[in-house]
Design a binder for these strands. Structure first.
Lengths: 244, 244
DNA sequence: CGGCGCCTTGAGGCTGATCAAGGAACGTGG
DNA sequence: CCACGTTCCTTGATCAGCCTCAAGGCGCCG
């Protein structure tokens, strides 16, 4: 199973000093194991803690009155979990484990201390928050303004790019590890229609499927029809302050 | 015309020290005036600077290949503008003036310096970034999983709450200052259908319209049918580090 | 007075939802 | 080892919400 520490993730973007590394590792001293399907945090709970997801996958979503669900983000190892709730007295989202997984909980006061002692890390977290916001707006544009086929294609590309960031050996074949219903809940479609769109993409020769694994046969075309841009690349972090 | 400085906005959330105030004000030393319709930043431009919007309203949006537009956010005085692009070499969004307005440009390196000298402000900016992300996910859920009527209702409530934050005298009547086409581009609808939904809300007795001004006659019902939550309230910032 | 931007309303069509039924894979207990 | 339940995938038929196209009205400004 894929594993990634927060220091590894942050280290993808900047070279951490050993002081910074120590400070970040301090957030992940405790460890919590979750079973597939377990709920870490529920909407309107009081979100006292934050988490680093270290092993397994989770998802954050919102439930509406009529029982429908909007998946906001799939969480992968190395992701900070629960940041959206850090400013509220009530959590705006529910977070559950899609697979068995391990998280490291830490009090949110530690986040303040971390930023205070290591402003550069604060700036980096601010940058990563912006990245997530941009990913969210991309999804917004996809759901608001593109066809079902394009939305599914964009989601597949995003999943591929994020998995590749964790494991460079992943190129175009991967097991997304999410059901068609979850794809639907992330893209604003029904599971039935997601299934049809996957079939169409397959018939178009853009993807292949086999036993839960998906191969992107023609990434450029997929990206074109879905207006997909990889937001996990193309950074400019030259404005970050020096390490302290 | 409404006006709001960045220090005022940040001061809504925490009491700034005079040092912090000085540092924030330094970001807005320069001033740039824009005509209604002017574009401040275009998608894929190199985003070298950030801006504080001090007077007037703007909007940030994404254009898709087929010419359709997804409005990501309406910008009001006191808002930081361009933060989404701060981490990229190419701007992910276009920003244009909806009315004549005034912005204060500053180099993004200044952001790094600000965070370095005043970590508490860095943490606050991180918190505000999370808030925008939550607003974005609310919109996502609205577009992905709710009806046209609910989306329009939610947008009206959000506009009201944001205007009220700027001007406490605004209660339930306001001039949104946006066209029906813009409401559509923000909610993933066509202008024609927005018009029908406004008429329905009016026929239902939930809103009243008169000469471009809108009155929310029944906020609670509007909030209920649209699952709207005011994300501009209910904060918990107790975890911020002390001022430096 | 003419043009333009925006709003308004009607008619018809298409995308994606809903309802329904069945199949494959897998784990679990007898 | 097999029967069974559960979960997920797959496909067909019908329906409806929202889009598209079209036409006209109002108010403002040059």
């Amino acid at each position: 199973m894929l594993e990634c520490r927060l220091t590894d993730r942050l280290g993808d973007y900047i070279d951490l000093t050993s002081d910074e590394r120590t400070a970040v590792d301090r957030l992940t001293e405790r460890e919590l194991r979750l079973r597939r399907g377990a709920t870490l945090l529920r909407e309107n709970d009081r979100p006292g803690e934050l988490y680093v997801l270290t092993r397994g996958t989770m998802m954050s979503y919102v439930l509406l009155d009529d029982g429908s669900r909007q998946i906001v983000r799939f969480l992968l190892p190395g992701d900070l979990v629960g940041m959206a709730g850090v400013i509220y007295q009530q959590s705006p989202e529910t977070i559950t484990a899609s697979t068995d997984c391990t998280v490291a909980p830490f009090d949110r006061a530690l986040l303040g201390i971390l930023v205070d002692k290591h402003p550069r890390l604060g700036a980096l977290l601010l940058a990563l928050a912006q990245m997530e916001r941009v990913v969210c707006t991309d999804r917004l544009a996809a759901i608001g303004r593109t066809t079902a086929k394009a939305r599914v294609a964009a989601l597949l590309l995003e999943v591929r790019d994020r998995l590749r960031q964790l494991d460079a050996s992943i190129v175009d074949t991967f097991a997304p590890g999410i059901t068609q219903e979850e794809i639907g809940d992330a893209t604003g479609l029904t599971a039935v229609h997601v299934n049809r769109m996957l079939r169409q993409l397959e018939d178009d020769g853009l993807i292949a499927r086999e036993g839960g694994r998906i191969t992107l046969l023609d990434g450029p075309t997929l990206a074109r029809i879905s207006s997909y841009v990889n937001r996990y690349a193309g950074f400019d972090l030259g404005w970050l302050p020096p390490a302290r």
